[in-house]
C-alpha cells in the first residue's frame, strides 16, 4: 500500500476502502450484450438443475451472499426438443427476452439496494 493511501486510511480510522457508493441502473446492465448472450445459453441450466436436485443449502451468513432469483424459472423454456409452431416459438422468444430483462432488472435492484 502506498504511503499516502496508508496515511489517508489512518486519518479515516479505516483499514481499507470499500467502494459502496456506486449504483448500477438497469439501463446500464443492459449495455453488455455478452450477459444476455450467456443467459440464453442452455448449458448454464446445469448449475440450476444441480441446485434443484440437491437438498436446499443453508447459506453461511458470514460470507454475505444474497439469495438468487431461481434460475430454473429463467431457463425453464430453453432447449426443449423439436421445433414448435411459429406463434408458440414467437411467444417463447418474447418470454425469453422478458426473462433476460427480468434478471438484469433484478441485478440492478440489488445494486441500488447496495446488496451487490
Amino acid at each position: 500500500m502506498r504511503i499516502d493511501a496508508r496515511h489517508l486510511l489512518d486519518r479515516l480510522g479505516k483499514n481499507d476502502f470499500a467502494y459502496k457508493e456506486f449504483e448500477d441502473r438497469f439501463t446500464e446492465l443492459e449495455l453488455w450484450p455478452i450477459l444476455e448472450a450467456l443467459l440464453r445459453d442452455p448449458r448454464l441450466q446445469a448449475i440450476d438443475q444441480v441446485e434443484t436436485a440437491a437438498p436446499e443449502p443453508v447459506v453461511n451468513e458470514t460470507v454475505g451472499t444474497s439469495a438468487p432469483e431461481p434460475l430454473s424459472a429463467l431457463f425453464s423454456r430453453y432447449g426443449r426438443g423439436p421445433a414448435e409452431p411459429t406463434d408458440v416459438a414467437a411467444e417463447r422468444r418474447g418470454a425469453q427476452a422478458q426473462d433476460v430483462r427480468a434478471m438484469l432488472r433484478h441485478l440492478s435492484d440489488l445494486g441500488s439496494r447496495g446488496e451487490i
Binding site: 448500477d24 450477459l35 448449475i47 438468487p68 433484478h106 441485478l107 440489488l110 451487490i116
Partner: peptide, 10 residues
C-alpha cells in the same frame, strides 16, 4: 461480479 453472484448463488 453481479452476474456471477446471481448465477452461482450460495
Amino acid at each position: 461480479a453481479a452476474f456471477i453472484r446471481e448465477l452461482v448463488g450460495p
